[in-house]
Write a protein that binds this DNA or RNA. Structure first.
Length: 317
DNA sequence: CTGTGTTTACGCTTTT
DNA sequence: AAAAGCGTAAACACAG
């Protein structure tokens, strides 16, 4: 680990694994998903170390995306052409780094095939139909409840205790936080039904703000920033570089075993005290972070129906 | 052709 | 010591 006190660590490798870096990038974006190129960009923008030897580390990063179940692939819409898919975090992968070390995970996030997955594999068309139906149900429910997202960043729906302050452990403000502490005793409530409490719902609702009015981003993005980011005065969306293109079919491509609600509760709340910044980040000099505007472009999309419902999460070690 | 994605393999480090 | 996690290289397929 680099020692504090230095003002630049540009030539040093950041103390984060590729998984951490990738998750950081994804989590930093309001849409909670990014194409590969944007993940590259995020990392290079913040960590000068990765502005060199790009072929090497980008290959490693792609390997991690494919290899690790904590990343799910989301296809583009047909009318949003471009190379590659969007990458998102599996909503239940939050406890991978619960020991606070982003260099090495305590355990690997792994999915386990369930009965419904067998069904999905044996009858892909049925699975697809199921997912579509779930998407419609959610859309209907959300449309009925209003045009604004109830809460933006924090899996607040169905979460009993830390409504507006919880941040996904992969949120950059948590990952980069150097004095990472676990307050404890603030665990998530058991995940509830898919339509109400499952984190992915909220996460991917966040991911597809076009479902709502274009003002949604302005309304909801800073929700959790109010307390944690006010000192920096930087809205969440300012750290999202791209994602103008959004997926056509909000269904993860990766084979998605079923996740049982409550099987993998998200970790406890982690205090965030660092601002997101596109500037080069030094793990040891977070104070250098300053505001830089790079507005996201809200665009159309659908809600992810149910990668969560089709997956089973198993932490192996 | 280039970028993206998947997979296998290997060596190293860290944890159990 | 064994297992697990990680980083890297490389081969290959595919799509834009």
């Amino acid at each position: 680990m680099p020692r504090p006190g230095r003002n630049t660590y540009s030539d040093q490798k950041p103390p984060y694994s590729y998984i951490s870096l990738t998750a950081m990038a994804i989590q930093s974006c309001p849409e909670k998903m990014l194409p590969l190129s944007e993940i590259y960009k995020f990392i290079m923008d913040r960590f000068p170390y990765y502005r060199e030897n790009t072929q090497r580390w980008q290959n490693s990063l792609r390997h991690n995306l494919s290899f690790n179940d904590c990343f799910i692939k989301i296809p583009r819409r047909p009318d949003q052409p471009g190379k590659g898919s969007f990458w998102a975090l599996h909503p239940s992968c939050g406890d991978m780094f619960e020991n606070g070390s982003f260099l090495r995970r305590r355990k690997r996030f792994k999915l386990m095939m369930m009965a419904s997955e067998h069904l999905a594999q044996s009858k892909p068309s049925d699975a697809a139909h199921y997912l579509q139906q779930q998407a419609k149900l959610r859309l209907s429910a959300l449309a009925a409840s209003g045009t604004h997202l109830p809460q933006m960043s924090g899996y607040n729906i169905g979460v009993s205790h830390q409504p507006s302050t919880f941040k996904h452990p992969f949120a950059i403000e948590n990952i980069i936080a150097r004095e990472y502490k676990m307050p404890g005793g603030l665990a998530f409530s058991t995940m509830q039904s898919m339509s109400a409490g499952y984190p992915l719902h909220n996460q991917l609702t966040t991911a597809w703000p076009h479902m709502y009015s274009s003002s949604v981003m302005d309304t909801v993005a800073p929700i959790s920033m109010a307390s944690d980011y006010s000192a920096y005065g930087m809205p969440l969306k300012s750290i999202c570089y791209g994602a103008q293109s959004l997926p056509a079919i909000p269904v993860p491509i990766k084979p998605t075993p079923t996740s049982m609600p409550g099987l993998s509760a998200l970790p406890t709340h982690i205090p965030a005290f660092l601002a997101n910044s596109p500037q080069s980040l030094s793990p040891t000099s977070p104070q250098t972070a300053t505001s830089q505007s790079s507005p996201a472009t809200p665009s159309e999309t659908l809600i992810n129906p149910a990668s969560s419902a089709m997956q089973s999460v198993v932490s192996v070690h």
